[in-house]
Design a binder for these strands. Structure first.
Length: 424
RNA sequence: GGAGAGGUGGCUGAGUGGCCGAAAGCGGCGGUCUUGAAAACCGUUGAGGGUUGAUCCCCUCCCAGGGUUCGAAUCCCUGCUUCUCCGCCA
């Protein structure tokens, strides 16, 4: 949610900024609603004031033993008027809230213009793209040959876009997850956390998935209403919902492994082959809650933490700064890390690291007490994949294959593979 | 699933219809004392919103949502939730 004060001081700025995202914002209709809100609110508060002062007078008269009948007669019809005003006010506030909740975050000044991913800017490139003296296979063919990846079985048990992993490849994914958790805890200073994988609507509203993106979610239960998490970002960031954090406890840094569930509605034709886009996948997520002045630096750091995993695994990647049109709804600035997939001959997203600034914090009411002012102020929230484990598995398979379709386990994963060096 | 007891400010906790946004303590902040610190003492200290040039002033908030009442932290209903005991159970 955007800062309500900004709506009063600089409506044009908001419009300009949202234009960058091709989000249509109409200041006139906002102003009309705001004017109505103001009138109704003042009216309601005046009626409330009248009720309060008259009621107080009755109490005082009664205490003195005076006759309160005339006073009671005066307030007879106040109740109905007040109730009507309050009802109208609630309706307008609801309408305004819906409008505000539907509006995306203001982009950081450093975010480049552009409508689509074609306008994203490459910031950095690392590693050597492997050259093979044979035609490299993709993970689907490799997995089938090794009898470790079975999409038909996934479809039989659940539906399309589900997969079953078996044997050493299943273990490889677990090893990847272990490595990531260990590195982020030991080398990057994150606290490991385990959280619910089903969350309520309030939590999803806090991080911005609701109300706009309900179609992307799996609803798991109606009573109580619970959704499967699309990312651990949701439960982890909601740790600080409605919390005033001690300044000395900042920054908060959490790492969490979880399965993620996405309906992928609207992605029907995309990435239908392989494990790139699944309804269920494993991910290790990094979340930070920081002071506002620290968030830009924290964003760079967090991205480096994700990059360190790729480096440790010796996977070639590039770092992209997303353009205005490709930056997510809640984010003010996002870096994507794209890993090289020889099977596709392309770089594909494996991590997305975002600075939400105070956008999520305002919805969450995640605050910290600023020692300088003594007042609670909104914190800044950030998160990033560190990394998507399923896609990392693919990347390891495709980058470390040999001409016989075997997978050579990267050095860093050997301690987690129980002595296995080659999957064949 | 059954029985009982709770949910009040950053925290602990008093408050059963008007004098309560709310005692007291802790914590925080400021001060006195001290070479400095601690202790002691004094003062101060909830959040959000409306209006305003700024103060003043006003409104809302005692888990949430309804209700009773001129008036609700307080009474009633529903839900959520925490704890204790019993049952069941990975």
């Amino acid at each position: 949610m955007l800062d309500p004060r900004l709506f009063r001081t600089d409506l044009e700025f908001i419009k300009e900024q949202l234009d960058r995202r091709s989000f249509v914002f109409n200041p006139e209709s906002y102003l009309k609603l705001e004017a109505r809100r103001k009138a109704v609110q003042i009216n309601t508060q005046e009626l409330q004031n009248e009720r309060n002062s008259r009621s107080k007078a009755i109490g005082q008269a009664k205490a003195k033993g005076e006759d309160v009948e005339p006073l009671l007669a005066q307030v007879q019809h106040l109740g109905d008027k007040l109730k009507a005003a309050e009802t109208e006010l609630v309706e307008i506030q609801y309408e305004m809230e819906a409008l505000m909740e539907g509006m995306p975050n203001i982009l950081d000044v450093s975010v480049p213009e552009g409508k689509s991913e074609d306008c994203n800017i490459e910031i950095d490139r690392w590693g050597v793209v492997p050259s093979f003296n044979f035609e490299p296979k993709d993970h689907v063919d490799l997995g089938a040959k090794l009898k470790g990846i079975d999409f038909e079985l996934g479809a039989k048990i659940a539906s399309s876009r589900f997969v079953v992993l078996s044997g050493p490849l299943a273990r490889l994914q677990r090893a990847i997850i272990q490595l990531m958790l260990d590195m982020h805890v030991a080398e990057h200073g994150y606290t490991e956390t385990y959280v619910p994988f089903l969350v309520n609507a309030e939590s999803l509203r806090g991080t911005g998935q609701l109300p706009k993106f309900e179609n992307d979610l799996f609803k798991a239960s109606n009573d109580p209403v619970l959704y499967l998490i699309p990312t651990a970002e949701v439960p982890v960031t909601n740790r600080v919902r409605d919390v005033i954090i001690d300044a000395k406890d900042l920054p908060l840094k959490f790492v969490c492994h979880s399965p993620c569930f996405r309906s992928e509605a609207g992605a029907y034709g995309r990435d239908v082959r392989g494990m790139i886009r699944q309804h269920q996948f494993e991910k290790v997520e990094l979340v930070q809650i920081v002071r506002p002045e620290d968030s830009a630096k924290a964003h760079e750091d967090l991205t480096v933490h994700a990059e360190n995993i790729l480096k440790k695994l010796n996977l070639p990647y590039r770092k992209m700064l997303l353009c205005a049109g490709d930056t997510g709804f809640s984010s003010s600035k996002t870096y994507d890390l794209e890993v090289w997939l020889p099977g596709q001959g392309a770089y594909r997203e494996i991590s997305s690291c975002s600075n939400f600034k105070d956008f999520q914090a305002r919805r969450l009411q995640a605050r910290w007490r600023n020692p300088e002012t003594g007042k609670p102020e909104l914190a800044h929230t950030l998160n990033g994949s560190g990394l998507a484990a399923g896609r990392t598995l693919i990347a390891v398979m495709e980058n470390f294959q040999d001409d016989q379709g075997r997978i050579h386990i990267p050095e860093a994963l050997l301690p987690y593979m129980g002595g296995l060096k080659i999957i064949e």
